[in-house]
Simulated assay, not measured.
Amino acid sequence: MADSSPPHRPRPPVGRRRLAARSPIHLFRLGLGWIFGRRLLLLHHTGRNTGLDRRVVLEVVAHEEDGWIVASGFGAKADWLRNLRSQPKTVIQLGNRHHAVTAHFLTPEEGADIMARYAQRHPRLARRLCAFLGLPADGSRAAFHEAGMAIPFVRLCTGVDSRPS
């Protein structure tokens, strides 16, 4: 019988691992964001309770003509994701360029398609991501599609966009 419990969500790193995980933020602050090319971006967001400026570095899952798609590996309860839901207009830094963006939250079906396409481009990374998140992924398109249903995806659009949130 299949296990219907929700997938295991990893806890954010603490101690030295947290310091290492946050090191790309410092590289962006030093003007070295170009090191990451188009692969990582720095998301500025405002704390929903504190109102303080916060930053997080995210992997770009897909690049589109009018923006970028990122995913929340720590699930729907990640602080940056909850902060964006509260205040979707923000700024990102890609390389050394800043872009004003608006966050649009994708449906699980859209996320599933994005994850399946991501897995085609980066099969090893996709398998490792699924293992890290506690999601099954046997390497098939269907498995990655199912994994994408469980991961929250966000489209960060530049300019005026008529897509629904």
Rank of each mutant, 00 (worst) to 15 (best):
R127T: 06
T50L: 06
A116Q: 06
G47W: 05
V61N: 06
I114P: 04
A126W: 03
G51A: 05
K89Y: 02
R55D: 09
I92A: 10
P123T: 05
I114N: 05
N49L: 14
N83F: 05
K89I: 03
Q120E: 10
R54W: 04
T46D: 04
A116T: 02
T102M: 12
V101G: 14
R85Q: 09
Y118G: 02
R117T: 02
A112V: 03
P108V: 02
V57K: 14
A78L: 07
R54Q: 12
R121I: 01
T50M: 11
T102H: 11
E110D: 13
R39A: 03
D79M: 13
S72I: 11
G95N: 14
R124N: 04
G75D: 15
H98P: 01
L129N: 13
W80F: 11
T102E: 15
E65C: 09
Y118L: 01
R117E: 08
N49C: 03
A126E: 02
R85M: 01
G111M: 04
L84H: 01
R97G: 00
A103I: 13
D66Y: 09
R39G: 00
L43G: 05
L84T: 00
R117M: 02
E110V: 04
A62C: 06
G67Q: 13
A116S: 12
H122G: 00
H45I: 02
Q93I: 12
N83L: 05
R127G: 03
R128P: 00
L52A: 14
L52G: 03
T50Q: 06
V57F: 07
V101R: 12
T90I: 05
T50D: 15
R97F: 00
H99D: 06
E110K: 09
F105K: 09
